[in-house]
Simulated assay, not measured.
Amino acid sequence: MSTEPKLARVIRLDESDVNVFDPVAEPGEWAVSGAFAFSDWSEADLVGKARQAFANGWLGLSSFGRATFVAVAPVTQEELEAATRALAQHFVERWGAPSLEAAWPVAEGEIADMRAMCEDHDTNTLLVVERELVEAGVRERIRVIVPEAADLVAFAVHGDRGD
């Protein structure tokens, strides 16, 4: 197993995400759990596409849309910084953080959590998130799907890292 840093990239195995998420994350985006978006939800919020986003959606860090699958992928320091910057900016624009500086440590924490989730898995390992509301808030479970014989590149839609 490699010691290079890893993060999760959105992949699309078919077009179903386009039908169940609004907005939908695009293949190749870096992703985090995004469970923070559901911290104050109740059963009344779990309807339609919002229910699907809650139950099974990873948060893409370019579109801030949701995706069903992410794949573990190597990440550069520059990409980590860009992902952190995008998420911190999202916290300012969408969640009312007072400044980029105030949002930065929270974004770093979200990225660190996702990196920790990915670090023990080989590249191209698929991750699926499953969430449910519980008395204490949101319970999140991660399902791991290890690629067997074929490299996911053979059939998944990935973005281009540019290298």
Rank of each mutant, 00 (worst) to 15 (best):
residue 39 S to G: 08
residue 36 F to W: 10
residue 70 V to Q: 00
residue 27 P to S: 12
residue 59 L to G: 07
residue 48 G to T: 05
residue 50 A to L: 10
residue 65 G to I: 11
residue 64 F to I: 08
residue 52 Q to A: 15
residue 41 W to I: 10
residue 58 W to S: 04
residue 70 V to D: 01
residue 70 V to R: 01
residue 59 L to C: 03
residue 47 V to Y: 09
residue 51 R to N: 13
residue 55 A to R: 14
residue 52 Q to G: 06
residue 66 R to N: 13
residue 40 D to N: 13
residue 62 S to R: 15
residue 68 T to S: 15
residue 25 A to K: 06
residue 35 A to H: 03
residue 49 K to V: 14
residue 65 G to A: 07
residue 63 S to H: 05
residue 54 F to S: 11
residue 50 A to R: 15
residue 33 S to P: 00
residue 67 A to H: 07
residue 25 A to N: 07
residue 35 A to G: 05
residue 44 A to H: 03
residue 48 G to Y: 05
residue 35 A to Y: 00
residue 47 V to P: 06
residue 26 E to A: 04
residue 32 V to K: 07
residue 37 A to H: 02
residue 35 A to L: 01
residue 54 F to W: 12
residue 63 S to L: 01
residue 54 F to V: 14
residue 34 G to A: 00
residue 45 D to Y: 10
residue 56 N to H: 12
residue 66 R to Y: 14
residue 25 A to F: 03
residue 40 D to W: 08
residue 39 S to Q: 12
residue 49 K to C: 08
residue 38 F to M: 02
residue 63 S to G: 05
residue 66 R to M: 10
residue 37 A to Q: 12
residue 47 V to W: 09
residue 43 E to T: 14
residue 55 A to L: 13
residue 58 W to Y: 10
residue 44 A to F: 05
residue 30 W to R: 00
residue 49 K to Y: 09
residue 27 P to G: 01
residue 63 S to D: 01
residue 46 L to W: 02
residue 52 Q to E: 15
residue 26 E to M: 04
residue 43 E to N: 12
residue 58 W to L: 04
residue 67 A to L: 04
residue 42 S to N: 12
residue 44 A to K: 10
residue 31 A to S: 04
residue 37 A to K: 09
residue 32 V to N: 06
residue 52 Q to M: 14
residue 41 W to E: 11
residue 50 A to S: 15
residue 58 W to A: 07
residue 43 E to A: 15
residue 67 A to N: 04
residue 51 R to T: 13
residue 54 F to R: 12
residue 46 L to P: 00
residue 53 A to M: 11
residue 63 S to A: 08
residue 28 G to M: 06
residue 48 G to V: 02
residue 28 G to V: 05
residue 50 A to I: 11
residue 34 G to T: 03
residue 54 F to E: 10
residue 70 V to C: 00
residue 69 F to A: 03
residue 45 D to P: 08
residue 26 E to Q: 12
residue 36 F to Y: 13
residue 43 E to K: 14
residue 61 L to C: 14
residue 43 E to F: 07
residue 50 A to E: 13
residue 57 G to I: 03
residue 56 N to Q: 12
residue 60 G to V: 09
residue 45 D to H: 14
residue 50 A to M: 10
residue 32 V to P: 06
residue 31 A to M: 06
residue 30 W to S: 01
residue 52 Q to S: 15
residue 48 G to S: 06
residue 33 S to K: 02
residue 39 S to N: 11
residue 47 V to D: 11
residue 46 L to C: 04
residue 31 A to I: 06
residue 33 S to M: 04
residue 51 R to I: 11
residue 65 G to V: 12
residue 61 L to N: 12
residue 36 F to H: 15
residue 28 G to C: 06
residue 40 D to K: 13
residue 46 L to A: 00
residue 35 A to N: 05
residue 68 T to G: 10
residue 54 F to D: 12
residue 45 D to L: 09
residue 39 S to W: 04
residue 44 A to I: 07
residue 60 G to A: 04
residue 47 V to C: 09
residue 57 G to F: 02
residue 35 A to T: 10
residue 29 E to M: 03
residue 40 D to Q: 12
residue 54 F to A: 06
residue 62 S to Y: 03
residue 42 S to M: 09
residue 56 N to L: 07
residue 49 K to E: 12
